[in-house]
Amino acid sequence: MNKDQNNKLDMYEAVQTYLDANTDKWNGVPVLITFKNQFSELLSNIREHQENQEAARVYLGANKTTQKRFVSEKADILNDALEAYAAIEENIELEQKAAKSFSDLNRLRNQDFVTVITETITLLEQHLEALADYGVTADQITDLKNSFDQFLTLQGQPRQYRIAGKQATLNLAELFDNTSSLLSNKMDKVMKRFKRTDANFFNGYQTARIIVNN
């Protein structure tokens, strides 16, 4: 990748980290969930195209613990809904499986973490129709899958939930063009809704969007 692309990638990573750290701020806006999923998939494909794999591994290794926390937070939120549904339906086995808090998940050994999160995603998808009444959407599960795939990449394991899309066949220049366009023409415009309702969150997003020339 050239210098300009590396600088843009640093910005993309900053945006992704910021959004993952503030899921509770934007997760109630369906269109943002859709755009975030598209953004995550584009970013995953850019990483796969990176020429300097050693540099990528250094970056990824430094962020594995942080990404595990993001996955744990998202799984915890969806588990709460699954646990409530199971309790009301008097499904004791499902309730026990869903009764995993953020700390329960985050302190698991990484290999056990992979097993538990995979099971959690399976259970969420199996009960998705019923969970709609509890505020769970397919896009939220996809968002969890994308974050989990990013953890697996950091862990040095193949992604389990590749979200199929045309991005996978695009070249690096097209991926950068599409990612920048998605941010500028879609995500930035929707994020303006927070300018007055949550100025701190909006300003943090604006800061993450700044490209630093290194």
Rank of each mutant, 00 (worst) to 15 (best):
V58I: 11
L152G: 02
T115Q: 15
Q5F: 06
I211A: 06
K166I: 15
I88K: 15
I211L: 07
T120G: 02
E93C: 00
R193C: 08
A55H: 05
E41T: 15
G28A: 14
D198M: 03
F35R: 10
D149A: 00
K97L: 11
F176T: 03
L154N: 10
R109Q: 12
T137Y: 04
A14G: 09
L175M: 09
N63Q: 13
R109G: 13
Q16I: 13
Y134E: 04
T137N: 08
Q167T: 05
E90D: 10
F202E: 11
G165M: 01
N185G: 14
K25P: 01
A199M: 04
V58E: 14
L78R: 00
A55F: 08
K186T: 11
G135T: 10
E174Y: 09
K97Q: 12
L105N: 09
S101Y: 00
F194R: 06
L19C: 09
A138E: 15
Q96D: 09
N79A: 00
A168W: 11
R196F: 11
A208G: 07
P30M: 12
Y59R: 10
L172M: 13
L19R: 03
A168H: 12
N37Q: 06
F148T: 00
N171S: 07
N2W: 00
I117C: 07
A208S: 13
T120N: 12
T34N: 11
